[in-house]
């Protein structure tokens, strides 16, 4: 999974801590998500996408192969 969280967060001038507070998670969770080391729940993905004013599929991008497996 590729995530565009860092890029979208930078556009909106949000720090990791700001985003974490807005979606009610710890900052470490945002770090894990940005590194692609954690797949969020649908609810958290939706919350993050909303805060980044984007659609879920624009924030979290899956390879076609990953979806077929």
């Amino acid at each position: 999974m590729i995530t565009r969280m860092k890029e979208l967060r930078a556009i909106r001038k949000l720090t990791q801590a700001d985003l974490a507070k807005r979606v009610n998670v710890r900052r470490e969770t945002i770090v894990f998500l940005e590194k692609g080391e954690y797949n969020p729940s649908l609810k958290l993905a939706a919350k993050i996408a909303k805060q980044l004013e984007s659609r879920i599929e624009d924030v979290f991008i899956f390879d076609e192969e990953e979806l077929i497996e």
């Binding site: 998670v25 900052r27 969770t29």
Partner: peptide
């Protein structure tokens, strides 16, 4: 510190 900052101590990942 987390309580003061309003950060949850337990979230989805933890």
């Amino acid at each position: 510190k987390d309580v003061k900052a309003g950060i949850p101590h337990d979230d989805e990942l933890s």
